[in-house]
Amino acid sequence: MGFKLLSKLLVYLTASIMAIASPLAFSVDSSGEYPTVSEIPVGEVRLYQIADGVWSHIATQSFDGAVYPSNGLIVRDGDELLLIDTAWGAKNTAALLAEIEKQIGLPVTRAVSTHFHDDRVGGVDVLRAAGVATYASPSTRRLAEVEGNEIPTHSLEGLSSSGDAVRFGPVELFYPGAAHSTDNLIVYVPSASVLYGGCAIYELSRTSAGNVADADLAEWPTSIERIQQHYPEAQFVIPGHGLPGGLDLLKHTTNVVKAHTNRSVVE
Rank of each mutant, 00 (worst) to 15 (best):
N149Q: 13
L195P: 00
Q228F: 02
A136S: 13
E145P: 04
Q49G: 09
I84E: 00
E233R: 10
S38G: 10
F174P: 01
S7Q: 15
N71P: 00
S27H: 10
V256N: 10
V28A: 11
F26M: 03
V45I: 12
G2D: 15
S38P: 14
S56H: 06
A51S: 09
S191M: 13
Y135F: 03
K258H: 12
A259R: 05
F26R: 11
L106P: 04
G131V: 07
L13K: 09
T140A: 10
V265Y: 15
H180V: 00
T14H: 05
L243D: 13
R141F: 08
A136N: 07
I74P: 00
A215K: 14
E145A: 14
A192S: 05
K258W: 14
T134H: 15
D118A: 06
E145H: 14
L204M: 15
P239E: 01
D64H: 13
Q229H: 14
G197R: 00
N71H: 04
S70Q: 13
K4C: 11
S161H: 03
P232S: 13
A215G: 09
I58P: 01
N211R: 10
T109H: 15
S205Y: 15
I227E: 01
S139F: 01
E267V: 13
P35I: 04
P69L: 10
G158N: 15
C199Y: 02
G2R: 03
T153M: 08
G210W: 06
G245C: 02
N92Y: 15
S205F: 11
H154P: 02
I100R: 01
N255E: 14
S113K: 01
T14Y: 13
D79G: 08
A90M: 05
A25N: 02
A66T: 12
G163L: 06
V171W: 00
S22V: 06
V265F: 06
A209L: 10
A215F: 05
N184S: 10
L13N: 15
T153L: 04
Y202R: 12
L195M: 15
E233N: 05
S264M: 02
D183T: 00
A136D: 01
L73W: 00
L173Y: 01
G123F: 00
P107S: 08
V28H: 15
L156H: 04
G105W: 14
I20G: 08
P190Y: 04
L82E: 08
V212Y: 09
I58S: 13
D79F: 12
D119N: 01
L47E: 01
Y34C: 10
S205T: 04
L204R: 06
A129G: 12
F116R: 11
M1F: 05
Y196K: 01
I84H: 02
S16V: 05
G65C: 04
I17R: 04
A90D: 06
G78L: 09
L83T: 07
L173K: 00
E225F: 15
E99R: 15
D29G: 06
T222A: 08
A59S: 09
T153S: 03
Q61F: 11
C199I: 00
V256R: 14
L24R: 10
L204D: 13
A259P: 04
S38E: 10
V189I: 07
Y34H: 14
G131N: 15
L217A: 14
L127T: 02
E147P: 10
A215C: 14
D248G: 07
S205K: 13
Q229L: 10
L83V: 09
L47D: 00
A95R: 08
E80V: 11
I238D: 01
V194T: 10
R167V: 03
H252L: 12
D79N: 13
Y175W: 11
E203G: 08
L243Y: 15
A165I: 12
L82P: 02
L249S: 13
K4F: 15
V237L: 04
E172L: 11
I58F: 14
I50T: 10
Y12Q: 08
A66M: 13
V54R: 01
T109L: 13
Q103D: 07
D85L: 00
E39M: 11
Y68T: 14
V67N: 12
W55S: 10
V108N: 05
W88L: 01
L249C: 15
V42S: 07
L5W: 10
A259F: 11
R110I: 02
S208V: 07
N211V: 11
L249I: 06
V75K: 10
T93E: 03
I100N: 06
R46N: 07
P107C: 05
R76E: 09
T182E: 06
L106R: 07
G148F: 09
N255L: 13
K4V: 05
V132A: 07
V265T: 13
L156T: 12
A59M: 03
A200P: 05
W220P: 02
V121S: 03
Q229E: 08
T60S: 05
S162E: 07
S70D: 10
P239R: 02
V126L: 13
E172D: 06
D29F: 11
I224W: 00
A144W: 08
D85E: 08
I84L: 06
A179K: 00
Y188A: 13
G65Y: 07
S31R: 13
D216I: 14
P152F: 11
G53Y: 04
L195C: 01
T109N: 13
T60L: 14
S62E: 13
I238E: 12
L6K: 03
K102S: 12
G242A: 02
A178F: 07
K8H: 03
P107K: 12
F3N: 03
L13P: 05
L143W: 12
A192N: 14
S113E: 10
F63P: 04
E233K: 12
E219S: 07
L24D: 09
R76Q: 04
L82F: 06
T134F: 05
L81G: 08
S205V: 10
A234R: 03
P35C: 14
L106Y: 08
P190G: 06
G72F: 01
A259L: 07
G240R: 01
A90W: 11
D119T: 00
G210L: 13
V146F: 09
T14G: 12
R142Y: 14
I151K: 15
A51K: 03
P69M: 03
E203C: 02
A15V: 07
S264T: 11
I40K: 10
L127H: 00
Y34R: 11
L249Y: 04
A111K: 02
Q228S: 14
G169Y: 06
Y175E: 02
T254E: 11
Q229S: 07
V112R: 01
G122Y: 02
R226F: 09
E150W: 13
L243S: 06
G2Y: 09
L47Y: 02
V146E: 08
Y231D: 02
Q103C: 09
L47H: 02
Q103R: 10
I100Q: 02
S62V: 13
R120T: 05
H260N: 06
Q235Y: 02
L217M: 06
R46Q: 11
G65S: 11
T261M: 04
T114F: 00
R141L: 13
D118F: 07
V124T: 04
A136P: 01
A179Q: 00
A19Q: 12
D118W: 06
G210D: 09
D79P: 03
S223T: 03
I238K: 02
Y175V: 12
